[in-house]
Nucleic acid binder design. Sequence first.
DNA 1: TGCACGATCTCG
DNA 2: GAGATCGTGCAT
Length: 169
Amino acid sequence: MKKLDENFFRRDAVVVACELLGKTLVRFHDDGTTCRYRITATEAYLGGEDLACHASKGRTPRTEVMFHGGGKIYVYLIYGMYWMLNIVTGVEDHPQAVLICGLNEVKGSGRVGKLLKIDKSFYGEDLTGSTRIWLEDSETYTNYIYKPRVGVDYAGEWKDKLWRFETLD
DNA sequence: TGCACGATCTCG
DNA sequence: GAGATCGTGCAT
């Protein structure tokens, strides 16, 4: 299996979110076990203007990594409980990210973070060089549906963007 | 220095 | 339908 490289991530978040469906997420745990998952749901967040994207509030310590260009991991804690796993996309100074919402049978981005044992230490991790988490290529999944993103009602006109992608299985 | 709230999930 | 639980951003 071929590891996805920087060129895959340095594109528009909507394109990457869509093409990530069906790709393999590999997690190498501290205890030596390796787990592989198929990505089944993603959401795209487009920085600067998209009010649902944290980076629309500006460059802060939390959003900093989204300004560094595609291929890095952006994690943050939500509701004081769940670590959300995001993949930074696009090029420098164009903050964007793709939220991983579902893996195999696991639905819900909160449970994805729990399953993968994601925590703050993954902030800024380089997906193309990490030895504990990376993505592998596969055939591009064409059988998918798109719908509005979840939990972003506050984002005005941006809440209606059809930037959530799910495989059909 | 304090406070309200959120890209969620689980349990009644 | 409500609670768990805490970092972040914005108001004092």
